[in-house]
Simulated assay, not measured.
Amino acid sequence: MKYTLILGGAGFIGSNLIHEYVKLNRGVISFNREQPDNGNLDGIRDKVVSITGDLGDSELLRRIFREYEIEEVVHLVSSLLPASPFYDYLKEYDEVTIPTMRLMKIMQENSVRKLIFLSSGGTVYGSYKESGYYNEEDPLRPINYYGLSKCNLEEYIRFEGRKGKIDYLILRASNPFGRFQNLYGKQGLVAVILGKYLSNQEVEIWGDGTVARDYIPIGYLCRSIISLSSMNAWNETFNIGSGVGVSVNEIIKTIEDALDIRLKVRYKEARSIDSDRVVLNIDKLKSFIDVEKIDLGKSILDFYKYIRECENDKR
C-alpha cells in the first residue's frame, strides 16, 4: 500500500486531514512528537499508522521511509503562534526548520518527491497593501516570527524544487475553524470565541475589532489540499481562503446571529504583530479546482452543534 506521511497528524488540521484521506481509502501515517488520546481518530484508528517521534530524529525517519511505501509527505509541524517571541523563533529554527531541510534530503535518498507544506496566508504577506488583498505573486513581508518562520521554509522548499530535487505544493491557508479545534487555546478566533461563550467569559479583542481576515471551515481546507494533490498541481503556491474579508467585529456579529446569543466583549490595546487586513485572493485556486461556496454563519453553527454533541456524549 502507498502511504501519505502526515507530520503533525495529531493536531487540529492533521486529524481532519486524516479523516478525509481515510474516506478515500488512502494509506495514512500520522507522525507526531506525542500521540494524544484526544479521541480525534475514534472510529478510524485501526486504519491509521501512528508513529511517535521527533522530526529531528533522522534515523527514525529513514526507517519509516524504508519500511513504508511513502507517496507524499504533508508537513503541518509548527509550535509558533503569531505572538511568539524571538527565542521561540530560534527554538523553532532548531527543532523544525533545520530538521525539515534534513527531511527533504531523506526524501531524496528514498526517491520520494512529493511534499505538501502548509504555510500561513494570514502572516507571510505582512501588512503593506492598503486594500489588504494579497495574491501568490505579492512580496512576502511578515511582521511576526511565525510568518518569518513559514517564509524561511517556503524559500528552502522552492530552492530544492528549482534544483529538481522535489515536487512541492506550498499552501498559504487563511483561518480554518471546526472539528477537533482547541476552544481554550490562544489561536483560532472562532474557536476561542466559542470557548469563551461556553465558559461564560468575556471575549478579549486586540484593538477596535476592525482587523480583517478570511475564515474557512476545516473541511474546505482539507478537501482543497487533497484536490490539489490529486490533480498533480505540483511546484505551485496557492492561497487557500474564502476570498472574503471579515472583521473581528463582523465575526462576533455572525456568531451572535448564528447561535442567537449575545457575547460579552472587551477591547484591549492593539498589537503591533497583527496585520490590519489580510484577505487572500483565490483566483489561482479557482483556476485549478472547483472551490466550495462558504456560508460562514452556517459553518459556525455546524461547528457549535458538533461541540455540544461532544459535550453530551461525555455526560
Score class of each variant (00 low, 15 high):
97 T>M: 09
97 T>W: 01
98 I>W: 01
99 P>Y: 05
100 T>R: 00
101 M>F: 11
101 M>Q: 06
103 L>A: 07
103 L>T: 02
104 M>V: 10
105 K>R: 14
105 K>N: 11
108 Q>W: 12
109 E>A: 12
109 E>V: 04
109 E>C: 07
110 N>T: 01
111 S>C: 12
112 V>E: 06
113 R>L: 04
114 K>Q: 13
116 I>T: 11
118 L>K: 05
118 L>I: 12
119 S>I: 13
119 S>Q: 07
119 S>D: 09
121 G>L: 06
121 G>S: 09
121 G>P: 07
122 G>S: 15
123 T>W: 14
124 V>F: 01
124 V>Y: 10
125 Y>Q: 03
125 Y>E: 09
125 Y>A: 12
126 G>R: 03
126 G>E: 05
126 G>M: 04
127 S>G: 15
128 Y>L: 08
128 Y>V: 04
128 Y>A: 11
128 Y>W: 15
128 Y>E: 10
128 Y>M: 08
128 Y>Q: 10
129 K>N: 04
130 E>I: 03
130 E>Y: 00
131 S>L: 05
131 S>T: 15
131 S>G: 10
132 G>W: 05
132 G>C: 07
133 Y>N: 04
135 N>I: 12
136 E>K: 15
137 E>Q: 14
137 E>N: 15
138 D>L: 07
139 P>H: 06
140 L>I: 13
141 R>W: 00
142 P>Q: 13
142 P>K: 14
142 P>G: 13
143 I>W: 05
143 I>F: 07
143 I>L: 15
144 N>W: 06
144 N>T: 02
145 Y>A: 02
145 Y>M: 11
145 Y>E: 07
146 Y>M: 08
146 Y>W: 05
146 Y>R: 03
146 Y>I: 07
148 L>N: 01
148 L>C: 03
149 S>A: 13
150 K>T: 07
150 K>C: 08
151 C>E: 02
151 C>F: 04
152 N>V: 04
152 N>K: 00
153 L>H: 00
153 L>I: 14
154 E>D: 14
155 E>R: 12
155 E>P: 02
156 Y>H: 06
158 R>Y: 01
159 F>W: 13
159 F>D: 13
160 E>T: 03
161 G>C: 03
161 G>N: 11
162 R>S: 07
163 K>C: 05
163 K>G: 03
163 K>V: 01
163 K>M: 11
164 G>K: 13
164 G>L: 13
165 K>C: 01
166 I>M: 11
